[in-house]
C-alpha cells in the first residue's frame, strides 16, 4: 500500500506543483482567447441582448476597411521608430555601466530603471507638454535654433516620432538592465585579453559582448516587438481627452491597432464582435512579427 502511494506521489506530484499555473492560464488566458474567437463570429453589440451569427463577415469587413490598414501601418511605423533606437541605446548604456572601474555602479544601474517606474500616464502628460505646438519646450528650442515650429500632433511622421520618444524613454533603461545581467555572465578574461591586444571599447562591444549575449538579445527583441505592436496608452493620452484619443488625430495619423480596437469595442455601439475579430487579427500579426524577428535576430553571430 505504502509503496503504491509512494509511486503515485512521485508520478503525480510534479504535475500538481505546476498545475496552478496551467489552471490559472486556462481560466484567464486560454478561455478568453477561445471566447474572443467565438464572439468574433457574431454581430455582437454589448448594448443589445440578441447576437446574430455572421460567420467571418467581421473579418471580411475588417480587411476591407482602409482605416484598419492605416492603423496597421501606423503601428509598424511606431514599432520601428521606437524599438530600433531603443535597443541600440540599451546596448550602449549597458556596455557603459558594465565597465569594471565605474564609480557608484549600483546608483547608475538603479537610475536606468527609474523611467520605467514612472507611471505611463505621467510620462505621456509630461511629454505631451514638451511636444506642445504653441508652448512646448521642444518647439521653443527649435525656434531658438531658427528651425521653425512643428505641430507634432498634426503630422503623421512627427506624431510617430513624439510617441516613439515616449516609448524609448520608458523602456530603454529596462532593456539595458536585462542586457547588463547577461553581460555580467560573459567571462572577464575575454575582455582582459582583448584589452591586452589593444581592442577599443567599441570593438569589444561588437566582437565579444554582442555575440556572447545573443540569446538575451533575441529575447529582448521579441518581447519589445510584442509590446510595441500593442501600444495603446501613449497615443491614447497623447490625443487628449477628446475624440482624438480614440481615432488618433483627425486624420487618424497616429491611430494604432489597439486604438482601432478600442474605437470599435468601446465606442460606435460597443461592437464587441468586430473588436474581437480585430483582436484575433492583431494576435496573428504579432505572431508573424515575432517569428520574423526571431529568424532575423538568430542571424547574429554567436560565440564559437
Amino acid at each position: 500500500m505504502r509503496t503504491w502511494l509512494y509511486k503515485v506521489d512521485t508520478r503525480v506530484s510534479p504535475y500538481l506543483y505546476i498545475a496552478p499555473f496551467f489552471v490559472l492560464f486556462g481560466v484567464f488566458g486560454l478561455f478568453p482567447l477561445g471566447y474572443t474567437a467565438y464572439v468574433s463570429l457574431f454581430d455582437w453589440s454589448l448594448l443589445r441582448d440578441e447576437h446574430s451569427y455572421v460567420g467571418f463577415q467581421n473579418y471580411a469587413e475588417l480587411f476591407k476597411d482602409p482605416y484598419f490598414w492605416n492603423a496597421l501601418g501606423n503601428t509598424v511605423s511606431i514599432l520601428i521608430l521606437s524599438t530600433v533606437p531603443q535597443l541600440v541605446l540599451a546596448l550602449v548604456l549597458a556596455h557603459l555601466v558594465n565597465r569594471p572601474f565605474i564609480r557608484g555602479a549600483a546608483a547608475w544601474r538603479l537610475g536606468l530603471l527609474l523611467p520605467n517606474l514612472t507611471s505611463v500616464v505621467a510620462v505621456v502628460v509630461i511629454f505631451s507638454q514638451l511636444f506642445g505646438r504653441d508652448f512646448g519646450l521642444i518647439n521653443a528650442g527649435l525656434e531658438a535654433l531658427g528651425l521653425g515650429r512643428i505641430a507634432w500632433q498634426e503630422g503623421t511622421a512627427s506624431s510617430h516620432v513624439a510617441i516613439s520618444v515616449m516609448i524609448i524613454w520608458r523602456w530603454t533603461g529596462y532593456n539595458a538592465l536585462i542586457f547588463l545581467a547577461a553581460m555580467q555572465a560573459v567571462p572577464k578574461e575575454l575582455y582582459e585579453s582583448a584589452t591586452l591586444d589593444g581592442a577599443t571599447s567599441g570593438q569589444q562591444l561588437r566582437s565579444i559582448t554582442i555575440p556572447a549575449i545573443r540569446p538575451t538579445i533575441i529575447f529582448v527583441v521579441i518581447v519589445s516587438t510584442i509590446y510595441g505592436l500593442q501600444i495603446f496608452a501613449e497615443p491614447q493620452l497623447f490625443g487628449g481627452g477628446g475624440p482624438n484619443g480614440i481615432t488618433g488625430g483627425s486624420d487618424r495619423q497616429f491611430q494604432t491597432l489597439t486604438l482601432y480596437l478600442y474605437e470599435h469595442g468601446f465606442n460606435k455601439g460597443f461592437d464587441f464582435g468586430y473588436a474581437s475579430a480585430t483582436a484575433w487579427v492583431m494576435f496573428g500579426v504579432i505572431v508573424l512579427f515575432a517569428i520574423g524577428n526571431f529568424v532575423l535576430s538568430k542571424r547574429i553571430r554567436g560565440v564559437k
Binding site: F135, G239, G240
Partner: peptide, 16 residues
C-alpha cells in the same frame, strides 16, 4: 486647438 490637451489649457491663460 485640440480640447483637453496641455496646449489648449495653456491657451486660456496666454490669450491666443
Amino acid at each position: 486647438l485640440t480640447a483637453w490637451t496641455p496646449e489648449w489649457t495653456a491657451a486660456f491663460g496666454q490669450g491666443t
